[in-house]
Amino acid sequence: MPRDVSTRWNSSFDMLRFAIEYRKAIDTITAERGMKLRNYELGAEEWKVAEQLCDVLKVCNSISFQMSY
């Protein structure tokens, strides 16, 4: 699970991409009452925002990879 690090924008992209990929798992876990993560449940609207931000960062990420190799 890639975690976000404030000084690395690349890590935000990794985290978002991972979150979107495992959306079902995250939804299941946050919906579970026993996990005490109900506050962090993401709505459909929020997933949409996540996807949009991920798409924007994807551009930067892929260019950075193209330049680095």
Partner: peptide
Amino acid sequence: PVRLMLVKVRVFFETQFCAL
């Protein structure tokens, strides 16, 4: 909304990472 979403994902990952 974007901030809220990021905070949620971030905290979720943080807690799951600690659990893992």
